[in-house]
């Protein structure tokens, strides 16, 4: 009998007649150098983020005439079952030529490319399982929507920015914590703009104190880079749990 001590847990297994562990085939950690554990809820600080897939589709004249739009629509349609994260997966679409077109039961055209904005606060991303038929109908009709259009321009940059704006948690994009974070970063940037990029604070979890601790830790850690990102996250997690 071989005994292995893991923490406080003592686990043992019988040997078979040839001297090998009887559980050799069921315990990969005994025979493999690298393994992954599926963490149970006890080890999760928060549930995983919803998987989000946002498709930006070029519908300018080049894309339409090369049949790319049609192929893209068919391909996405055929891959819907394979998208990870079902049934929590969120999906959204936008098309672009000289303007950007968002979809929510209707097409919403945003043509101000110098000051791109998202036309709705909700419903530009939908749950794939719940809205499957709507998504499929949209993809089926997509090629014919732009068949007769003659539009030479392709506004990929603004479209990408718009997609980012949608995938960020829209409701919290311009929240109090984000504003405070920007103020702190702007203060730092005033002394050294080579570092400290401006950003939005996008919540990765659900505890409201996380943002607060991030800000206070950032302020206190003005020497910079004394600890790594992982240690930062562990520290915030610890602080949240203690609070």
């Amino acid at each position: 009998m071989v005994s292995i001590k893991i923490g406080n847990l003592e686990y043992c297994a019988q040997l078979d007649a040839t001297g090998r562990r009887v559980d050799l085939n069921q315990r990969p950690e005994v025979t493999k150098g690298t393994v992954e554990y599926v963490a149970p809820t006890d080890y999760m600080v928060r549930p995983p983020m919803l998987p989000v897939y946002f498709f930006l589709i070029d519908v300018s004249i080049t894309a339409v005439r090369s049949v790319m739009v049609e192929v893209v629509a068919q391909t996405i349609n055929s891959c819907l079952d394979e998208l990870p994260g079902i049934p929590r997966t969120q999906i959204g679409f936008a098309t672009f030529d000289s303007t950007i077109h968002f979809y929510n039961m209707k097409m919403l055209v945003v043509s101000d490319l110098d000051d791109i904005f998202v036309p709705l606060p909700d419903y530009l991303l939908v749950n794939l399982s719940e809205s499957r038929s709507v998504v499929e109908t949209f993809l089926d009709s997509l090629p014919s929507m732009f068949q007769d259009k003659v539009n030479l321009e392709s506004a990929f940059g603004p479209a990408l920015k718009a997609a980012f704006m949608i995938m960020v948690t829209l409701k919290d994009n311009d929240n109090e914590m984000s504003r405070r974070l920007k103020k702190v970063l702007e203060k730092f940037r005033s002394t050294d703009c080579a570092y400290y990029q401006l950003c939005h604070l996008v919540r990765q979890g659900e505890h409201p104190k996380e943002g607060f601790f991030l800000l206070s830790n950032l302020f206190e850690d003005q020497m910079g880079a004394n600890i790594g990102y992982a240690d930062w996250m562990l520290q915030i997690s610890r602080q949240v749990q203690q609070a």
């Binding site: 209707k106 097409m107 043509s111 101000d112 000051d115 904005f117």
Partner: peptide
């Protein structure tokens, strides 16, 4: 085919 609106800030 599809209801459509032009959106302005």
């Amino acid at each position: 085919a599809v209801p459509k609106t032009y959106v302005f800030k």
